[in-house]
Structure formats: C-alpha cells, structure tokens
Nucleic acid binder design. Structure first.
Length: 503
RNA sequence: GGUCCAUUCGUCUAGUGGCUAGGACGUCAGGUUUUCAUCCUGGUAACAGGGGUUCGAUUCCCCUAUGGACUACCA
C-alpha cells in the first residue's frame, strides 16, 4: 500500500464535540497502526462562522487526549499551509480549470432569488434542484450569451462558480465501512464550489487540499456521505485518483433520538466536550469534570469500534495495535455517561495511593483543608475502591476533616436508644485512657469492652459511627478514629451525646 | 417532500447458513460487611415486522416499519 496519510479537518466554529474527537482518534489510530502520518487541517473557509479561540481549543483538546499531530499549523510540514484561509490563492485556479474543461460555470443568481424559487417549488410540492433540469433558465454562463456573462464579470458583478452535474448518470463508488453505493446524478444539484466572497466552499477546498496533501484515506463523519458523489465527480473532473473513504457512524443522544448535541450535556449534566469551553455560552468539559484522558479516549474508541475480543480496557498503544477500520460498526452509537464513569473508575483504581494523594491534596486546598501526604495516602487507601473521580474522595472523606454539623435523622431514629448515652460515655473514658490509638489496638480494646459488658455490637458501633461521621456510612470505624485522632474523637462523642440526648 | 445510510438485551457490542445467540455497562437477587460503598456469586433481558431463497435462516435477497444524515454562496 502507498504510504498512509490521513487528516482531521475540523472547522473552528466552536468547541470540538466528542464526535469530532472520536473522528480525530480513529484517524490517528489508523495512521499510527499503518505507520502513517496524521495531519490536522483547519477548515476555516466560512469567515462568518469563525470563532475566536476555537483553533487553540481544538489543538489543546487533541493534546490532552494524547493524539499527536504530525503535520499541522503548529507543527509545520511539507504540505502547508495547513489552514485553508492561508491557502486562499490556490483554490481559484482549480475552479477556473473546471470552467475551462466545461465542468463548472459562473452563476449570477442572488441568494434572495434562489430562495424565492425554492419556496415556490416547495409550495407546489416539488423539490428545487439547481441542476440540468433548470439551469438553462437561470442566471448563469450556461444560459446567458457569452458576451453578456463576460460583461457581467468585467463589471465586477458578484458570482459563484457551480459544478456542472451531468445529466442522468449512475455515480458508483465504495465506502470502506458501507460498501458499494450508487447514486443517480439527477438527484444531485450543481453545488457551489467557489463563493462570491472569494473563498472556496468545503467541497472544492476539501478535494483540492486532500489531493495536494496526498491524503490516502478520508475518515470522516457520516454526515458527509451524501456529498461523496459530488466529491467523486470532482476527482474525476480533475483527473485525480481519489483517496479511499470511510464514513463513521454518528454519536447519538443518550436518551431519545437524534445526534448528540451540546444541549444534551447541559440538560443531563454530563459534558459533551473534552475541555471546558470558556467563551460566550460556556460548556462543561470532561477534563474539568474529573475524567482522565486515558479512560476518556478508551471509552470513545469503543463507541462504534471493537477489537473483536472481549478486552475493554486499552491503553493508546494497545488501541493502535488493535485498531482496524473494517471493525468499525455501521450504525450510530448512543453515548452512555454511566459507562464513561465506569471507565474512569477502572483507571483510577490503577493509580497509586501516592499519585491520588497528590491530586487530592490540590482538591483539598480548594476546600480550605490540608494535611501531609502520608496521612492522605492512608486516607486514600480507605476509600479508593469506592470512588470514580478524585473529587469523589472528598464526598467520602469530608468527615475526616470536620466534625458533623448535623446527624442523619433516619439513622438517629434507628440507632439512638436510651442506653446509648451511657455506653458512649463509657467508650469515651476507655478511649481517653488508651495509649496506643492504632486501628488494631483500638479494635482490640473496644471489642473487648463491648463483649465484656455484653453489649450489642451493632448497636454500639452504629451509634459510635453516628456521632463521629454524622450518618451511617464510611470505612471501618477503627481506621476512621485512628486517622482522626483521640482528641477530636472525644470531642465528637461529647458533642454527640449532648446534642442527641435531647431527642 | 426528495436522496442516501442504518436496525442483535435498556445501552455499547460479539457472532454465524445449523450456537443453550457470548461479553461489558445498567438493573435485580443473594453473599461478605458493626454502616455505606466496594467486592464476589447468580439472575434479568435482544436478532424490528412480513415475504422469499434454503433441508435449515439472526446471518443471503425483497418489501414494510422505525431511526438517522443530507437537502445553504455552513462545514
């Protein structure tokens, strides 16, 4: 096979959606699997929709994901420039070449005029298609006498260049994922290739750049499938070899219908973007929500692709090795926030207590607490397996840092009895006199005291937990009290007795 | 409306002309636990429908239904 060169070609019109990230990922995996090159090309031919900051956002997102760009606006390369607005001059000549060979023409119709025609034919139940069926009647260089349209051009009248779609021709092509597809050219319209503002449309720029950059495989979203016939025609008109195409299935909403959108994330409280989007209407990002890039990528890779084995946890290296484009599915995949969480949980479990302690220390700081790293490691060890995110650690351990400010009424009702104050009073003196406050020592002492007095273990321990934690949750009591320390424990028992005895 | 694409448990999916249709997430139950969670064990649950082809179709073909994308001087 010729050498593999693939590109990810987003438009800088806002934050990069996870569907876009997945497209980038599949391109990247395919390139690396085949020893090829991954190119990032910015498609900013629509000046009106350009959004400040989007380009940086795209690059930062890929970087966070661990998707390494080989050629691009920041990396450089031998096929630049990699931003279409910087390639502006090269497109017109290709449009002109098409006109020269008779496969394209100048059109002078105004957008308003076309709009009117469209609504009119809609009213009569017909579809308006700007093609062979009607172009002779419109305002273009095919319908007008040459002297007339040349004069318009000379006068500087606004024009676009349209592709001249042939009449009644079966256009046949193959897609790696979808197989053979046939479309009749009569259902296609004479697409605008070159706009009146002097910029090419996606269709022209895309084909020209893919050819000039020697792209071997185009891997993009399914929304492009309907324009593939046009693209194939363009390659034919230019006499170029077309790259191979693979159209990826779409990412769908977690509930209901339709493709995933920004709104879904807002509505259901999960992110649909890799990073926080800080401009204008802000949007949540996976990174800021506490996801690690590895599980995020892992999750995305498995949305629409699988290795054919039962392996689900993959490193990027493993993904590259296992990836194959013909194992990509055909139907849309629904994004599942629950499974995304599970992936993060899996990765977090593999982190060392030290790594997590370091991360958690930063988090604690924002809550106004601090502690030394060794103590935090001990703490992490107690709750690690029950959390999916570093921020969850706080929810599991807040009572280690501050005394409860209220007691769960349900738990009080269930576990606070007439004997409880007396028992906890005894426990308090026991702990005051205990020299070794390690978990093991505390356990021996407390369990001995309970048994010696014939108390009910569950009753005593739950009441004890209630005054220390404020509710019936958390790790083993002996680990908790040893970490918190005698003085604070005594204080909490005292407070608990005085507050709860009034019930 | 037109064109194109798709359809296996609730979700992501494996799979093949003959299988008890497999796994994961979720969910449910049991176990472990002085609590909660984790964890372990087990269960639940699917080939959209109808016609063909065939000795036999989830698998191949056709139709229908449903879903989706596109239908801009946006990408």
């Amino acid at each position: 096979m010729e050498r593999v060169r693939v590109r990810f070609a987003p438009s800088p019109t806002g934050p990069l959606h996870i569907g876009g990230v997945r497209t980038a990922l599949y391109n990247y995996l395919f390139a690396k699997k085949n020893g090829g090159t991954f190119i990032l090309r910015i498609e900013d031919t629509d000046q009106a929709r350009f959004v400040e900051g989007a380009e940086e956002y795209i690059m930062e997102s890929l970087e966070w994901c661990g998707i390494i760009v080989d050629e691009g606006i920041r990396e450089g390369g031998n096929y630049g420039p990699y931003r279409q607005s910087d390639r502006k001059e090269i497109y017109r000549q290709y449009a002109d070449k098409l006109i020269e060979i008779g496969d394209a023409y100048f059109a002078f119709d105004t957008p308003e005029n076309l709009e009117t025609l469209r609504t009119e034919s809609e009213k009569s139940g017909k579809t308006f298609i700007y093609n062979a069926s009607i172009r002779e009647k419109l305002n273009n260089s095919l319908a007008l006498p040459e002297t007339e349209w040349r004069e318009k051009l000379d006068r500087g009248e606004h024009f676009v260049i349209r592709y001249k779609m042939p009449l009644n021709e079966e256009i046949r092509f193959d897609d790696i994922i979808r197989g053979h597809i046939v479309v009749n050219s009569d259902t296609l319209d004479d697409k605008v290739l070159f706009k009146s503002d002097g910029m090419p449309t996606y269709h022209l720029a895309n084909i020209v750049d893919d050819h000039l950059m020697e792209i071997s495989h185009v891997i993009r979203g399914e929304e492009w499938l309907p324009s593939l016939p046009l693209h194939m025609m363009l390659y034919r008109s230019f006499g170029w070899n077309a790259p191979l195409f693979a159209h990826l299935p779409l990412l769908l909403k977690p509930d209901g219908k339709g493709k995933l959108s920004k709104r879904d994330g807002d509505k259901m409280g999960f992110p649909v973007f890799p990073l926080f989007w800080p401009f204008g209407e802000t949007a949540k990002g996976f990174r800021e929500e506490g996801y690690y890039p590895e599980p995020f990528i892992n999750m995305l890779a498995l949305l629409g692709w699988n290795s054919g084995t039962e392996q689900e946890i993959f490193t990027m290296e493993e993904l590259i090795n296992a990836f194959s484009i013909d194992r990509v599915g055909k139907s849309g995949a629904r994004f599942d926030p629950e499974k995304a969480k599970w992936f993060n949980h899996q990765y977090l479990q593999k982190k060392s207590n030290n790594e997590l302690a370091l991360e958690f220390r930063e988090f604690l700081r924002s809550h106004g607490f601090h502690d030394d790293i060794n103590r935090l490691e001990t703490l992490i060890a107690m709750v690690k397996e029950r959390v999916s995110f570093v921020k969850d650690i706080w929810e599991q351990t807040d009572f280690f840092f501050k005394a409860p400010d209220n007691y769960d009424p349900e738990a009080v009702k269930k576990r606070w009895t007439e004997e409880t104050p007396k028992q906890l009073g005894e426990l308090k003196s026991l702990l005051s006199g205990l020299t070794d406050f390690s978990p093991a020592s505390a356990e021996t002492a407390i369990m001995g005291w309970i048994k010696g007095n014939g108390y009910n273990t569950g009753a005593v321990m739950n009441a004890f937990r209630l005054v220390i934690v404020g509710s019936l949750r958390g790790p083993h009591m002996f680990d908790i009290i040893s970490w918190i320390g005698r003085e604070e424990i005594i204080k909490r028992i005292t407070n608990g007795i005085s507050t709860l005895s009034n019930y």
